[in-house]
Amino acid sequence: MTGSAAFNLSAWSALHLAHVESALERWVRPDAATDAEGGAPVELMAAMRYAVLDGGKRLRPLLVLAASEAASGERPAAANTPEIALRAACAVELIHAYSLVHDDLPCMDNDVLRRGKATVHVKFGEASAMLAGDALQAMAFELLTPDDDAIPARQQAALCRLLARAAGSAGMAGGQAIDLASVGVALTERQLRQMHRLKTGALLQASVMMGAACGDVSAQAEAALMSYGAAIGLAFQVVDDMLDVTADSATLGKTAGKDADQDKPTFVSLLGLERAGVYAQELLAEALAALARSGLHDTQALQGLARRLVNRTC
């Protein structure tokens, strides 16, 4: 299950993050707004870049790359990251960025702080923020369907389907709809888990499965990675709910305490802070157990990312 060489998650992450940032800077490029033909409006591109660049944990791209390496059995240097994995990693991040832009709008969560800076609608206006989110969503699928042979057609279709399902009514958008309808409503633990499996967990799970789709894994490994993705997806939200209570806005980079202020059901309000912490660790154990039965040779990056997301402080 593990590679023979000592694994350093911080060093691994730094290498891959540098490549992801460079790729995002290149693909969401400012000169696209000044192209003679087909260029995007300057204001729109500025809002898109503001939403994507210079901020965020980039957890989802890292999960794509970690799963891709586990599926291929190779751990290349960041400079040699396969094109298919890099495009999949950036596509997931664009979908995540678009979702945050829309979630922060006054008609949704009405937030003014994201990643330690003003939200996109505060900076550029509501209409520009809506369009920037729409354009980021479209760009994600454009990255997965390049004109050249960087991604074989079969894998293009598989990646697009995974991402579309995770972002749509059976995933992130559906979860957000349930969330908006649940303000002031007493949900059961089962209902709360289902909401967050869609709203938060679906895209995290899809990140793992898109990484696996960049390679060729057995049915056993695919099922194990599905379980791993489901566990960390739910664990991420449990910890998010805990941090909303225990951390301040400066630490989080977003407005703290909003769940309680808006009377939203959370794992903390339902289980209590201590039990929520225990539940997060139980989900981490589930994720690591899934990797152990995957049959994959090297899952150290996936293990490390699971521990990082559960034990994070911001």
Rank of each mutant, 00 (worst) to 15 (best):
31 D>E: 14
44 L>K: 04
137 Q>T: 06
237 Q>S: 09
123 K>T: 15
235 A>R: 02
137 Q>M: 10
276 A>T: 14
192 L>A: 07
3 G>Y: 02
241 D>T: 08
255 T>K: 11
70 A>E: 05
29 R>V: 07
262 Q>E: 14
160 C>D: 02
17 L>A: 04
108 M>Y: 04
152 P>E: 07
213 A>L: 05
25 E>H: 09
300 Q>V: 06
88 A>S: 10
201 G>T: 02
285 A>K: 12
86 L>F: 04
229 G>S: 09
200 T>S: 13
310 V>S: 08
161 R>D: 13
311 N>H: 15
245 V>Q: 10
32 A>M: 10
297 H>S: 11
106 P>Q: 10
211 G>W: 00
59 L>N: 01
211 G>I: 01
27 W>T: 06
296 L>G: 00
191 Q>T: 06
5 A>Y: 02
230 A>D: 13
220 Q>G: 11
48 M>P: 03
295 G>A: 05
63 L>M: 12
275 R>N: 14
277 G>N: 10
142 E>I: 03
98 Y>H: 12
186 A>Y: 08
125 G>V: 11
31 D>L: 07
157 A>T: 12
101 V>W: 01
74 E>G: 05
209 M>Q: 11
176 Q>T: 08
89 A>Q: 01
146 P>T: 05
101 V>G: 02
45 M>C: 12
70 A>K: 03
161 R>H: 12
255 T>N: 10
274 E>R: 13
35 D>R: 15
223 A>C: 12
189 E>A: 14
121 H>T: 08
299 T>F: 05
110 N>Q: 10
245 V>E: 13
151 I>P: 00
115 R>Y: 09
46 A>G: 07
4 S>P: 09
273 L>K: 13
105 L>G: 06
253 G>R: 03
3 G>Q: 05
108 M>E: 05
194 Q>E: 14
270 L>A: 10
239 V>M: 10
133 G>W: 00
113 L>Y: 13
223 A>K: 11
190 R>W: 04
55 G>N: 07
32 A>F: 11
52 V>S: 04
107 C>A: 15
269 S>Q: 10
238 V>I: 15
201 G>F: 00
264 K>H: 13
290 A>R: 03
33 A>G: 14
114 R>N: 10
293 R>C: 11
207 S>W: 01
288 L>K: 09
22 S>R: 15
254 K>R: 15
135 A>G: 11
290 A>G: 07
127 A>K: 13
88 A>L: 03
137 Q>L: 11
88 A>Q: 01
185 V>C: 11
38 G>F: 11
271 L>A: 14
291 L>G: 03
291 L>D: 06
43 E>Y: 02
249 S>W: 09
91 A>V: 05
140 A>I: 01
50 Y>T: 05
1 M>D: 06
81 T>L: 12
56 G>I: 05
232 I>G: 01
83 E>M: 03
169 S>M: 10
105 L>R: 06
198 L>A: 08
47 A>Y: 00
81 T>N: 03
137 Q>I: 02
18 A>L: 09
311 N>L: 09
107 C>L: 12
128 S>M: 14
151 I>F: 00
262 Q>K: 14
87 R>A: 04
